[in-house]
Design a protein around this nucleic acid. Structure first.
Lengths: 217, 217
DNA sequence: ATCATATTCCAATAATCGTTAGATTGTGAC
DNA sequence: GTCACAATCTAACGATTATTGGAATATGAT
């Protein structure tokens, strides 16, 4: 009786444990973007390959991620959509509740130029009609794995060279991996300096999808 | 840059850590039912008062729970509805992914008499029309803090004495704290032995509310 | 004031976790 | 076959956590 109950909570606790490490959370967020190899993950999370491997092992044991082997590379991916939803849910709760986190987030806002509270469906509509240009500043492979409707890929690393692709007479909305990612912020800063009407969208594809909005590709 | 990012994930990790202990999860589930004192929580989770206090301190530091002092008692409650939603979300993911958990759950099903897959809205409708009788077998204070619409309170501890309040010609649906709670199972077992048409509903109020269905009181 | 009770704080233990270094396995290129 | 590389495993360390017992606070009853 009590033993069975303990077993049940124990099992859920395993998932909780997997969510208890900052590095593992960062890996989960990266995997929300697209499947990636251990090396890509270690580079993007700025940790050693060994450490990444160890954390990924934990995540795999909790069945939050799955692997696929291709040649000498092992590709990790989220085990299912629900994992991304849980991440969005968890981060949302943290944003509300933890003061330090709010301070950290507000310190990275480009003042007066983010679209934090903006209605997402209206952005979608304006993007479809062409009133605004939505750019995805993540690396190209992440865009290919799934992106917002009507968005065009323009990785941050190529932004300077390809500025001519953007109109100056229309608002440009940039998004990246989500609220913790700074690529959109950097992109907006650059664009604004060059005289573009640039805005930032806090959402990434995981947040977008968790709210039931459509994703392309 | 990297430091700020680390800080952000660190903060979310605090919430994850709070969810990493089976005991804390059980406390959260209990607090989904109603506010409770430390002693009530320690008894219902079957742990010592000191241990309960220590775990509750963790939960409070993660801002998942709040306290209210009344005389010499300290009442704990969830900090907000989103915490219950997160619990439901987390447990749902665990149920799908962790094999042992599925085995544990299936071993506690009263064979052929649970309503696991049944449409919740149809139960609601049948309860309103009086086709079925929905009973809440949790302690009375938890019923008072919130319960399913049209449900009547009939705590498991009083069920034997108050059997005459239930009809034998109608289905009786019992629910309790949720899928991990065994009170509804016990109630159904007793009722079936006495010749009632008894069924079990896996949901508790947290699951019910997380799915957007109404709660009374 | 004294007493009983509810809760928390403090200290100490064993157990677990994060991280790194070194060795090992598996794969494709030559 | 050898070589280079991706990824994992093993062992080890210090840091953190769960749990318990004893002391300390706070509150209401007497």
């Amino acid at each position: 009786m009590r033993e069975l109950k303990n077993l049940l909570y124990e099992q859920v606790g395993r998932i909780g444990k997997a969510l208890a490490s900052p590095k593992r959370l960062e890996l989960i967020e990266l995997l929300c973007q697209s499947e990636k190899t251990v090396e890509m993950l270690s580079q993007q999370a700025e940790i050693s390959v060994k450490l990444a491997s160890a954390h990924l092992k934990e995540l795999r044991m909790a069945r939050l991620v799955d692997t696929r082997k291709e040649g000498k590379y092992v590709f990790y991916r989220l085990a299912e959509q629900g994992v991304a939803d849980l991440w969005v849910n968890l981060r949302g709760l943290a944003e509300e509740r933890l003061v330090d986190l709010r301070m950290g987030l507000s310190s990275m806002v480009t003042h007066g130029h983010d679209l934090r509270g903006v209605d997402r469906k209206s952005i979608l509509k304006q993007a479809r009609s062409g009133e605004v240009v939505v750019i995805d500043v993540r690396p190209g492979d992440e865009f290919a794995a799934g992106h917002l409707p009507y968005a065009r890929s323009l990785p941050l690393t190529e932004l300077k060279k390809r500025l001519n692709e953007l109109p100056k007479n229309k608002p440009v909305v940039a998004y990246c991996r989500g609220p913790f990612c700074m690529m959109a912020k950097d992109a907006v800063a650059l664009l604004q300096k060059r005289g573009y009407q640039a805005f930032m969208l806090d959402d990434g594809v995981a947040e977008w999808r968790a709210r039931g909005l459509p994703i392309e590709q």
